[in-house]
Design a protein around this nucleic acid. Structure first.
Lengths: 235, 235
DNA sequence: CGCCTTCTTGAGGGGCGTCAAGCCCAGTGG
DNA sequence: CCACTGGGCTTGACGCCCCTCAAGAAGGCG
């Protein structure tokens, strides 16, 4: 069965299902691939499918009528994508990298959630984590300087790429899933400011930038101090 | 029984409970009152109680070590307060106005949630709404100008004070539940900038400010246009 | 009436946005 | 193999929006 061997299963929302439920889900799923930049879900679109991310990074984007935009969340595997119980999405979802999804009709998930308290509980847990992340990020957006924002972003990606990493394990390389423009939209900055702050961090020997997609973190202690503002750091 | 006649019951999380569950809950609740400015829940504190708001407004605050702060959410009656399934809160909650709460031990709610799918479903719904609000506000924090932010805040409070209001029902008065400093922390601005923008709106005849606590909205159409940036508005 | 907190207004400066030019590099086709 | 092309990235010059600092006004309360 598809779901039994699913790479995303144990940490995803389907992790709590019985095997009967799992085979029901398996019958109704399909895998889809998107290239970097493709739109997965348009704002205002009728919402009839949900998905789990198998691999890649999905950005959730909000738009102002005049074109200003803000990335309000990044979703990594095995996160869930789609606004539960909403008829239409008020957010658009776009592939930030190449992405593979496991999608299923809306009704399948909603009926499973009704039958299985474990499933609903997992959805609640995931939503709570999303709310927590969103609120953390509001502090970053609202009250940090450009320098602190870029440091915060690098810490976020570092944590995602290796949650177990220790401070003394430097230097290490991280792979940026976002283009400069996306980073700017995530941090509420402009592309130019993001570039300048990366340059500043490079000159301060906190990071190195060997090429567009990669960052080498040289001094994790100072990077974290900048991001969390636990002490004053000259840059 | 206390809960049977509760003013917040039907729209709150306890609205889906059977009468047996309701009386169990009623045995374990107590009402508490807080004065404006009092702390309801400190960040880092051990979390052993949850609450529903009976009246008043609660602000959720995040702090940076150096004192900068951001209000990451406003909760109105009959919203739920407390971070579900978290051992310690990473947010502090403070009474923005005088507040009355209905509180109960953490275990009571969590066991009710286990027994009653309806209860868990309501918690999920409320969390989803919170996530949606948070993401909307991220766009406001990140991409709107000071002028647009203040207009957005006034629209938010207007909507809360009368969700059914029509555009032609102007002028009308709204009661500000927050001090200027709180508004600034909610909008990621300074007190001075909030004041100046209110003055600008007053000079543009969009609002009037008869005293500190009240705002008279004279031109809801232009206020909304500013908040949502649907068209260009001179101020 | 005096004191304290909150609000308002002004003057000045700095951080980040805007505009513009040039660089890097992958992909394409000759 | 290399010229060409175009998108993304980087850097500089300049200006504006909002923050900072400061002083005074307006209430609230003993």
């Amino acid at each position: 069965v598809v779901c039994q061997s699913c790479e995303a299963r144990h940490k995803g929302v389907c992790g709590g299902l019985e095997s009967a439920e799992l085979s029901y889900l398996a019958k109704n799923t399909s895998k889809k691939a998107y290239r970097r930049g493709e739109e997965i879900l348009a704002a205002g679109e009728k919402l009839d499918r949900y998905s789990n991310i198998l691999s890649g990074v999905v950005k959730l984007v909000k738009l102002l009528p005049d074109g200003r935009q803000q990335i309000v969340g990044l979703q990594f595997a095995p996160d869930f994508v789609g606004q539960l119980f909403a008829d239409t999405s008020n957010i658009s979802a776009e592939a930030a990298t190449d992405v593979r999804l496991c999608t299923f009709p809306r009704q399948v998930l909603e009926s499973l959630a009704e039958q299985s308290p474990a499933m609903e509980h997992r959805l609640l847990q995931q939503t709570l984590r999303g709310l927590d992340d969103a609120r953390d990020w509001m502090l970053t957006l609202g009250r940090k300087t450009a320098k602190e924002k870029v440091a915060s972003f690098l810490m976020l990606i570092s944590a995602y790429s290796d949650p177990e990493r220790k401070e003394f394990e430097t230097p290490f390389t991280i792979d940026l899933p976002l283009k400069r423009g996306d980073i700017a939209d995530y941090l509420s900055l402009t592309v130019e400011t993001v570039c300048r702050q990366l340059t500043n961090l490079r000159k301060a020997k906190i990071i190195d930038v060997p090429n567009r997609q990669h960052i080498i973190v040289l001094d994790l202690v100072r990077l974290r101090a900048l991001a969390e503002q636990t002490e004053i750091v000259d840059v």
